[in-house]
Simulated assay, not measured.
Amino acid sequence: MARLKNALRGHFVQKYTPGQEEPGTEWLELAKYISTIGDDTQEETEDTAFYDGDGTPETDVVSVAGAYTPEGSFDPEDPAQALIANMKYKTGDGRKIWHKVVSADGKKEWVGRATVSAIVAGAGDASAYEDFSCNIRFDSLPKETDLSGE
């Protein structure tokens, strides 16, 4: 089994317009000066024991909220970072984007509307480059597409 570098996984964003059902074709890659992207996915579970078992609770995953947390240095001229930075003082639909994740092997992608929160676009020590970070959480399960052609 091959091990793949995280840098091969693609994260792309684009502006969301309220009422828009599908994203457009023009994506902005969120990569320049991004040094790490964490997986901040949250799952909710329920434990239930049944009489047809031995009383040991079974765990069911009842919801999944996929999320990523890119971090790095802020470049206000990078289109993807600028799109997110310009949302900092917005609420509601002003924090919505389309998010696309392409697997490191290029065989699958996940696309969906997402909400951006915890935006940092310019902060840090005086002697350091400005920080950039945010949380991008899918609003529902993203649409998975097989790109392998198999």
Rank of each mutant, 00 (worst) to 15 (best):
A2S: 12
E144Y: 00
G94T: 09
G24C: 06
R9K: 11
K96W: 08
T145V: 12
F74T: 03
E130H: 06
S35T: 13
L4F: 14
G106W: 08
H11I: 08
N86T: 08
G66I: 07
S117G: 10
K108N: 14
A85N: 08
D139A: 07
I34L: 06
V101W: 05
Q81V: 00
E29P: 13
G112D: 02
A85L: 08
P76V: 03
D78P: 10
S148N: 11
V62S: 06
T59A: 03
I119N: 00
A85Q: 05
G112N: 04
F138S: 01
P142R: 02
N6I: 13
Q42L: 08
D146E: 12
E77V: 13
T45Q: 11
A49F: 05
T91I: 10
K107E: 10
I34C: 01
E58D: 12
K88P: 08
I34Q: 04
Y33E: 12
V120W: 01
G53H: 07
T69G: 09
I136Q: 03
V64E: 13
S103F: 06
G72Y: 06
T145M: 07
D75R: 07
D40S: 12
D54V: 10
E26G: 10
E130G: 05
L83V: 02
C134W: 03
T45N: 06
S35W: 01
P57W: 03
V120T: 12
T115P: 02
S133E: 11
Y16S: 00
E29I: 09
W98Y: 06
P23R: 00
Y89K: 09
Q42V: 11
D78G: 05
R113L: 01
V61F: 10
A49Q: 08
E26D: 15
D54T: 11
